[in-house]
Design a protein around this nucleic acid. Structure first.
Lengths: 212, 212
DNA sequence: TAACAATGTTACTGGTGATAACTTATGGCT
DNA sequence: AGCCATAAGTTATCACCAGTAACATTGTTA
């Protein structure tokens, strides 16, 4: 493959601009928030002219949308990693992982859900990625329902409740609206359990003591 | 008021700049989002020079923070208006009002909770206003607890759960992440009820059928 | 080798937040 | 009444930003 005599001399073509810009932007986002992302600054830091970025990102918003997509994908992966053997425990763990993701990456999480990027329909990939993360939660609930661990109510209702709970918890947590940010996991587990105990099927009610 | 001889001739001193700027900014926010708020544009529309605004708002962020404060105050008022006679019904109605507020003023709501303005400690008035709205919810829960309609668990835990639920529901709703945006109130009521039924005190459990 | 497409470049426009230095009206004090 | 400190405007200016247009360089392909 082309051992050209002077392969390093010319850096006219960067060769990896999109990915490097993406990574650098992600780093800036994580550390300083989306507002701190400047295409000019990115270009300068990479060592390339500013308009070059427009060859790969039609927009600044487009770049942010890509970052949000990777965020949803990362969230999805972390949600997929939870052990699904015990349905009830899986639901709680999903909540814990979800909230811990938001706490680990508050700026990324805010970008994903801040409504700043996503007029919902402008960036199809973003919608797909978001749906992908959501799907894990829904599948887990459906599984728990099938196993009889959750009331057989409307799946969409149950999912909306669960997602709202962990999402709201995440948002309030990273915004500092909750007291005792230290004992966070305990709070999360307590809150999720609270919802769960209200969703336990009648015939499993007597089992409640075995889990705690 | 005060028919001074030539009250209109001199407009060097606007006389009402802060309030008018606040109102105009709020209108822009509601219709186009916080990103669309430009001090220069505001000044031009009011008919005043841009730096004039800096006499009244030390910062752009400071103006946004004031808008968020009014948002929290408005939310608090709407929450205070719900009928508190029936504790259970009050909790559900609080949730309905909360979510409907977010849906009525999505851009304002996003500003209030977007984490864009509130490093939590920079704007004391904002913290106070936020706490004020939160307090209504907490008081309602405490009341319901005192009346025996809610499990006597930690008030902060119960409040965190309730707030997370309605907040998450609001956020997901205004971002279009929930299906069937039409039957929104029904969904909200169902979700809140779901949490509530998990929080019902043992001795009131048999009453469950009377409400549905 | 000639044409082409992709990827980069410099030059430029319009808009933004913010500050400095200056000007004018207001209102309290003597 | 007259004065003057100060509040509330003004113009001028800076630094930064997103985005566009026109041009230059490279790799590929006919």
């Amino acid at each position: 493959m082309a051992d050209s005599p002077t392969p390093l001399k010319t850096n006219y073509h960067h060769g990896d601009l999109p990915q490097q810009a993406h990574e650098l932007a992600l780093e800036v986002l994580r550390e300083h928030g989306d507002a701190a992302i400047s295409l000019r600054a990115l270009a300068k830091q990479i060592g390339v002219s500013a308009p070059a970025l427009y060859r790969h990102f039609i927009d600044r918003d487009s770049l942010l949308a890509e970052l949000a997509v990777t965020g949803f994908e990362a969230l999805r992966e972390r949600l997929l990693a939870v052990d699904q053997s015990n349905p009830r425990r899986a639901l709680i763990d999903i909540g814990l992982v979800y909230v811990s993701f938001a706490r680990d990456e508050p700026n990324l999480y805010r970008l994903m859900f801040g409504g700043r990027v996503l007029p919902k329909g402008i960036h199809p990939r973003l919608d797909i990625a978001g749906r992908g993360a959501f799907q894990v939660l829904e599948d887990t609930i459906a599984q728990a329902q099938a196993a009889g661990y959750v009331k057989p109510i409307s799946l969409s209702l149950m999912t909306a409740a669960a997602w709202s709970l962990v999402h709201g918890l995440s948002q309030l947590s990273i915004d500092g609206h909750l007291p005792s940010a230290k004992a966070e996991p305990h709070l999360t587990e307590g809150v999720v359990t609270l919802l769960l105990d209200g969703s336990i099927a009648e015939n499993k009610q007597h089992k409640k003591d075995t889990t705690s």
